[in-house]
Design a protein around this nucleic acid. Structure first.
Lengths: 336, 336
DNA sequence: TTGAAAGCGATACCAT
DNA sequence: ATGGTATCGCTTTCAA
């Protein structure tokens, strides 16, 4: 692979001059510019981004840490960051982490080695302290899907509790009073928060949520199926169920239908996330839209800004996002 | 961010020595090794991967070019490459391209700038010639999902035609004789290849495939819905339909059911790809498994090997993959 | 076992 | 407008 020196030699100019034409520097005669361009082309010269990064001390890559690119939710997150990267002529460096502290830390460490000073990190396993520590070292670190007290300004997150409330209000407005809930047993805050919001609204309206009608499982299709079976087996009746996410909701619907319950006529189901899936299911899923792509874009932009440092602490945009109810076909008014 | 010099100065040794302990070099006394380690830790020193790449001339990053990370199919591709990258202590550099030649070329160009010499590229828009050209410049370039005459050894692809044949045999074995086909109108080879294989088997068995029962649309849920409507509107009857991909198949099923046809009892539907979706649909989709993740892994390993150059031209593994029939619930024996 | 120094490929400052 | 050269952070001979 030819270098700037090769180009300089062949073109009969100095490397400084070549550098100037590469960077569209100001003072180069049209004549030499053209001459150098021709040589660059002949030699198939491509500037070395690493060397460049070394001397300029700035990296044109933005890092993303997510657990699994195969999960549509995280794919959307990555895509959001990628769009901003692209717009700023940067590229995505992807680091996947299993959901455990060591792995998340290592993923971030790899980005640091690459001197990637702009990054969007989804971390559920690292402690607040660790993240705060990392945040000191890395100018442009933004945490997504989580708030950390003390560095809220570098976090972009969703109001899960409000999501639960919206779901409850929707179901209540549809006249449902016998409610069930399928949650996730993952050891993160989100399930508890969503459930709490849901329960809170019910409590305000003095609508009970029976203990036997709350079930927690793995947040997957399978988990949804199992949870629905449990709900059915409890012997309690219910006309609507709030499910932790869309995958579980689809699993639940599947089990419900297999047992002779029609969704939404017999039982209404509301999901969470609004991933692609929800539009492919039959009936199409009523769900809460998690604006992850928009959030990722905002996170990337914030990270970029933070890495630039120059500006003062003025953050205008809201960091906390609120899910939006998307009414489709899986919920309906309770048949009286 | 502290550098190797800082560490050397504080530890009172030369940079050469520090470099040795960082790289676990051979001849360093246990004493100095420990001393240096301590200083590295105190200073929070992290070696600069860019500088390293510059001098060693080897990059620890593997590039992936795909149109859209949000598409589950490409996410699986990326994931496969990522797994191999991880195993080799490398990271993913993601370059997305719209499906047009200029954009694909630019994505690759960016990887070249980063001196990424190992890459897996999904390209539908670039010409054979361009790809062959690129292949000369880049040691570890592997093309996925496409065969290019002359550089087959650097390609990993699927036998689309065989896929069509398998689908046809499956439907025929189920006694279906009134067949329909929903294809894609995208200007790439795959749709035509799949259709050709399908038709070929039918021809062998002297089973007709009416022109009116072949429809091409955008390969999406929507496209599948429209195609199914067209099929129904044609007035011709059919008991089974071979669909270009799973998304379209789900769309088709939706339309079919809405029109009173039960799948699979009235009409059998077989998809292609076996993406996540197919397991979430009701009925669960019978489809052809496109082993994209396995292919991506193989591609990454091949790229890695190619970039190493050392070895001779001995390629043992098969580069051409064959889809596998996955029988689920959307196809069944024709009710006579 | 350790250190000095050359160099990887570029940029940018200082001269000319 | 152009060239010379120090420098970025690191690895790697070659000596000591």
């Amino acid at each position: 692979m030819s270098t700037i020196k090769d180009v300089a030699r062949v073109a009969g100019v100095s490397v400084a001059t070549v550098s100037r034409v590469v960077n569209n520097g100001p003072k180069v005669s049209a004549k030499t510019k053209e001459k150098v361009r021709k040589v660059m082309c002949d030699l198939g010269y491509t500037p070395n981004a690493n060397a460049r990064a070394l001397v300029t001390q700035k990296n044109t890559t933005i890092g993303v840490v997510i657990p699994d690119i195969t999960d549509p939710f995280f794919a959307s997150l990555a895509s959001g960051v990628e769009q901003i990267a692209r717009k700023n002529h940067m590229q995505l460096l992807l680091s996947t982490s299993e959901i455990n502290a060591a792995s998340e830390m290592q993923a971030i460490q790899l980005l640091i080695e690459r001197r990637c000073d702009v990054m969007v990190v989804h971390s559920k396993a690292l402690s607040d302290l660790q993240l705060i520590d990392l945040n000191k070292k890395i100018k442009g670190l933004v945490i997504i899907d989580r708030v950390i007290p003390g560095i809220e300004q570098q976090c972009i997150w969703l109001d899960n509790e409000e999501g639960g409330k919206i779901a409850a209000r929707h179901l209540l407005a549809l006249n449902h009073t016998a409610l069930a809930c399928i949650s996730s047993h993952y050891p993160i805050d989100d399930p508890a928060l969503r459930l709490r919001g849901f329960q809170q609204v019910l409590a305000e309206q003095v609508v009970p949520l029976k203990e036997a009608l709350i079930d927690q499982q793995e947040p997957s299709l399978k988990g949804g199926e199992i949870a629905a079976q449990n709900l059915l087996a409890s012997g309690e009746t219910f006309s609507a169920v709030f499910v932790y996410n869309d995958a579980m909701a689809i699993g639940a619907i599947s089990t419900l239908e297999d047992n002779g319950y029609h969704v939404p006529n017999d039982i209404s189901v509301i999901g969470f996330d609004d991933v692609l899936l929800s539009r492919y299911s039959r009936p199409k899923l009523t769900t809460l839209h998690y604006p992850i792509e928009a959030m990722a874009k905002q996170a990337a932009e914030l990270a970029l800004r933070l890495a630039d440092q120059n500006e003062s602490e003025t953050t205008v945009a809201t960091l906390k996002h609120v899910p939006r109810l998307v009414k489709r076909e899986s919920t309906t008014r309770k048949s009286s």
